[in-house]
Amino acid sequence: MEHLDQPYKYAVHHSEEEGKKTRRMIWNMFFVLLTITTIEVTLGIMWKDFGINWHFVKLTFIVMTIAKAYFIVAYYMHLKHEKSALQNTIILPYTLLALYLAYMVLTEGVFVDYINHLF
């Protein structure tokens, strides 16, 4: 075992008190995720019985998915409590490239749809 001259400063430690708070947050988040998933599945099976528009259902799914992703990344992956430099380094490149990809696929999709209707 290598001995370090200075204690390793990026390791996180917390007390029993703080641990209790963190655990409460973890379980609260679990119930949030569980609720969203339950709503999604119910909607997925029953949306025809509710008589709502499919595009609305689709949009609801996407919004709920992004909400779930936010909760997992922010709380379980702890990104919310990292330095803003780290947050931006992770979120910005991903968002930009994902939006660019979505833009390219949509552009191509519109073109292919146009071609399909021509022939």
Binding site: Y8, T65, K68, A69, I72
Partner: peptide, 26 residues
Amino acid sequence: RGHYEMVEKVGLYWHFVDLVWVFVFT
């Protein structure tokens, strides 16, 4: 070693796997 940061690192990977499944599921 005096800290459990290694658990945190694999934890990040594990949460990511869950995160991807959230999208695949949708």
